[in-house]
Write a protein that binds this DNA or RNA. Structure first.
Length: 274
DNA sequence: GCGGAATGTAGAT
DNA sequence: TCTACCTTCCGCT
């Protein structure tokens, strides 16, 4: 489930298990053998996230830059670790815990300068400390000048870092905004409300390690419907609910391709600006 | 066992 | 706009 909340959660999970303690690093799958050899035996200095990028810091050695892409997964476990399967790109282990990384788009050792370059090309992240350019106004400068649809802008990591296909669909539903609205037609009030909502939703996502977007008054219990959890693990309004009824208006949820991703929305609840 | 799809991105065209 | 890439899981034969 790799949207930004997952990566920030992973950074915290790495700090908790490995920070300040020496790790053994291996690459059973083989594509990161050289990098693993350089960090093994060193302590993890820190771990941080920006959007969907994870950075594991090792003093003197640099950073392991990890991007899970669409398929990547991280699994943690206690000692002793089981024999790794041959798809494990990176295993970190100490006396108490281990971590297995599979299927990432990126797992590479980078320098501090290379890390700075990645930060520079990413937009503000609702999960990073606010201020110093990490704020809704930085994103608004791009959004408010763009003829691109708000649905595409929300997935553009240069505009906002960390939002993925689920948060995009859900935040637009929660604000009643038609996904095809051009960025320049949004009001500043709408944008700051979207940002504030992303901060809340994604923080809750880090805490629970899943995406829940349904307000208390709209849960199945509150609406007198049978309880239900969506198959990606959380409770949502529109994501992957095409051709099902909208929780609020009962109309059909629609789906379409937008910038090669699946878009979901409720035409009844989400209106274009007048 | 095979084919398709999946919460993503970079690079070529 | 397209294609390639990384892995797992589910539904269909």
């Amino acid at each position: 489930m790799p949207e930004g909340h997952t990566i920030h959660r992973l950074a915290a999970d790495h700090r908790e298990r490995f920070e300040g303690r020496e790790v053994r690093a291996t690459s059973p799958q083989g594509k990161f053998s050289d990098g693993a050899a350089l960090v093994t035996g060193r302590p993890l200095a820190t771990a941080e996230a920006h959007g969907k990028h994870l950075f594991l810091g090792f003093a003197e050695t640099g950073w392991i830059h990890i991007h899970l892409g669409l398929f990547g997964k991280v699994a943690f476990g206690g000692a002793p670790p089981p024999p790794p399967t041959d798809t494990v790109r990176l295993r970190l282990a100490n006396k108490a815990a281990y971590m297995d990384l599979r299927g990432p788009t990126t797992c590479a050792l980078i320098t501090d300068e290379e890390k700075q370059a990645i930060h520079a090309r990413l937009g503000p992240d609702p999960l990073r400390p606010q201020g110093e350019g990490n704020d809704p106004d930085t994103a608004w400068r791009r959004v408010s000048r763009s003829r691109t649809t708000i649905a595409a802008l929300l997935l553009d990591q240069k505009v906002v870092a960390g939002v993925g296909n689920v948060y995009r669909a859900e935040v637009l539903f929660r604000h009643g905004i038609d996904p095809y609205t051009p960025g320049k037609d949004l009001t500043y009030t709408q944008w700051t409300a979207i940002w504030a909502d992303l901060v809340d939703l994604m923080r809750e996502g880090v805490r629970l390690n899943r995406i829940d977007t349904v307000r208390p008054e709209h849960t199945p219990e509150a609406m007198g419907r049978p309880p239900r959890v969506d198959d990606h693990g959380g409770e949502v309004y529109v994501y992957r609910r095409a051709r099902q009824g909208c929780h609020i208006c009962g109309g059909e949820i629609r789906t379409a391709d937008l910038a090669a991703r699946n878009l979901f929305w409720c035409p009844g609840c989400q209106q274009a600006p007048r």
